[in-house]
Amino acid sequence: MDYGDKEIGAKDLLVVFLRAFLIQTSWSFERMQSLGFAYAIEPILRKLYPDQMEYESRMKLHMSYFNTQPYLASFILGGVVRLEQDRASGRNTAADVQGLKDALMAPLGALGDSFFWGALKPLAAVVATALLMLGSWWAPLLFLVIYNSWHVGLRCAVLFWGFANGGDAVDLLARYRFTRMAKLFKVISLTVLGGILGTMPAWRPELKPAIDMPGLLLALSGMAFTLTLIVVLRRGSSPVKLMLGLAVFCLALAFAGVIK
């Protein structure tokens, strides 16, 4: 059957892909990404619904509350585009578009947060910071390459995947094992972090403690100090309070004559 101008092609999806980079532009506490979602999908609705009343009603639907991890929102966008296409072309007039959004936003939010913010970002940051602290000026570029090869690649892939399977999350999870990858990334981040502490004597001169002691002993001291800070952190201190506390500690050492 020929559905004519109710057919969504790669060019239309590319527009959604580009607009999805602005999904959080008007992020607010009440409606979070609702305007961003409607903005990303608006060209599709305009194409699918030439009737003004129907277009308006679909726009209003997509401006309801929406919030998920911004990168995985592309998967939901892909699925929604597919359902809207099926609905507008008459292939599936009962398509529950809102139901799909409601069902996916919370689980994909949790999954995306733990993968992108909790695993990929720390991994890219820890590897790049390790190299930067050892004197590699190009480490920030490496950070951008590591992070964005996943970020942009996945954003594009899940949008098209969501469109292809109509937003089937089970299919998504079978294809991309986010939880397993997150665990792997966290383990690598921790070992590289250990590596940063172990290479302390080779840090840039601005960051290397100016203490006259053998390299191995310096690294062990750094590790011991870090473990002490972890113990303090477990008692519930915030980063800001700890930074201020550390400054007071340094001032006390300076005025006590411990550091020259």
Partner: peptide, 13 residues
């Protein structure tokens, strides 16, 4: 010089 150690502790935590 001590701040990277605090950063490492925050990430491990």
């Amino acid at each position: 010089k001590l701040l990277p150690l605090l950063g490492a502790a925050l990430i491990v935590r």
